[in-house]
């Protein structure tokens, strides 16, 4: 069908079904806004990860009596571990220098410590910085290893907090998605009933199945896109009002930037369009005989 007549069919359907379409849009908006919020929280976690990547590491402290063979053996194992991307050796002197630098604000602490007091160490960069637990367990207690410290563990409460909110947002999005699907299903049923004369005639004069379904799918897809645009608007508003307006001043960590907002908005729009069109097609199988 040409776009003109298709748009005309869509428009009459919309006028006939305005209240239903409005409620579908509202539900989709909430659903997609929650989805977008979840994506932004994940983006925030990644932002923090990136920020801390060079600062907090897993450190394998070596015993003072480690033999050259033991150290070579240990380093070989670390190098061949897929979870570890880089291994850097720090001698006792280097560890001491770092210690002095980290605690330069506290001369009292530095004063009581000499280079010999601190263990030499292997500093590890992990493929997935958040999967440090396994690495700690694997290398603790090996010959020549005094201990494995995960500096990231200090941040676990923060990560747990962000994770909880991310999961909560996604769960709400899922519940809203179910509601949206139920509403789209109902909208299609009502719409198919309202259009039954038209579809009967379309069938009769030999319109293809795709043509007969097109106005319904369009109706649902437009609702999905409008819902997606509203949700994207909410994300932008949240970035301007909440993130930039409130949190920047309070947070010690950097916050996600605009690129994360645009990525989430694009994802939300795409999901809105595709999921609503797919749901409409599914409902049509049930409610429209072609």
């Amino acid at each position: 069908m040409r776009p003109g007549p298709l748009a005309a069919l869509w428009w009459t359907g919309l006028r006939r079904n305005l209240a239903m379409t409005a409620s579908v849009i509202v539900t989709i908006t909430i659903c997609l806004a929650m989805l977008g919020a979840g994506l932004l929280l994940r983006a925030q976690v990644h932002t923090i990860d990136r920020y801390l990547l060079g600062q907090l590491e897993v450190v394998v402290d070596l015993t003072d009596d480690i033999t050259a063979a033991q150290r070579t053996d240990l380093e070989d194992r670390l190098h061949s571990d897929p979870a570890i991307t880089a291994v850097r050796y720090e001698s006792k002197q280097q560890v001491f220098d770092r210690f002095r630098r980290d605690f330069r604000g506290s001369p009292d602490v530095v004063a009581g410590v000499g280079p010999e007091d601190l263990p030499a160490a292997l500093r590890l960069t992990l493929a997935d910085p958040r999967a440090s637990g396994d690495v700690v367990v694997s290398y603790t207690g090996l010959d020549g290893v005094e201990g494995v410290r995960d500096q990231r563990a200090l941040l676990q409460p923060l990560y747990r907090f962000l994770d909880a909110f991310t999961i909560g947002a996604f769960a709400l999005a899922a519940v809203q998605a179910l509601a949206s699907f139920a509403l789209i299903y109902t909208m299609i049923r009502i719409s198919a009933h309202g259009r039954r004369r038209e579809t009967a005639i379309m069938r009769l004069v030999g319109a293809s199945n795709g043509t007969i379904r097109a106005p319904f799918v369009l109706e649902s897809a437009v609702a999905g896109v409008v819902g997606g645009l509203c949700a994207a608007g909410l994300l932008v508003a949240a970035k301007i009002l909440l993130v930039d307006g409130q949190f920047t001043r309070q947070s010690t960590f950097p916050l996600f930037g605009w690129s994360a907002v645009w990525e989430s908005a694009a994802a939300v729009l795409a999901v809105g369009l595709l999921a609503s069109a797919a749901m409409a097609s599914l409902a049509l199988r049930r409610h429209l005989r072609v």
Binding site: M1, A200, V205, S208, T211
Partner: peptide, 24 residues
């Protein structure tokens, strides 16, 4: 008859061609 009540006579007839994708 099975005509569409909200369309004119011409639009009813044109509908049959529109939905099989005939050019305008």
């Amino acid at each position: 008859y099975r005509l569409l009540p909200n369309r004119t006579v011409a639009a009813n007839v044109a509908f049959a061609l529109d939905v099989i994708g005939r050019p305008r």
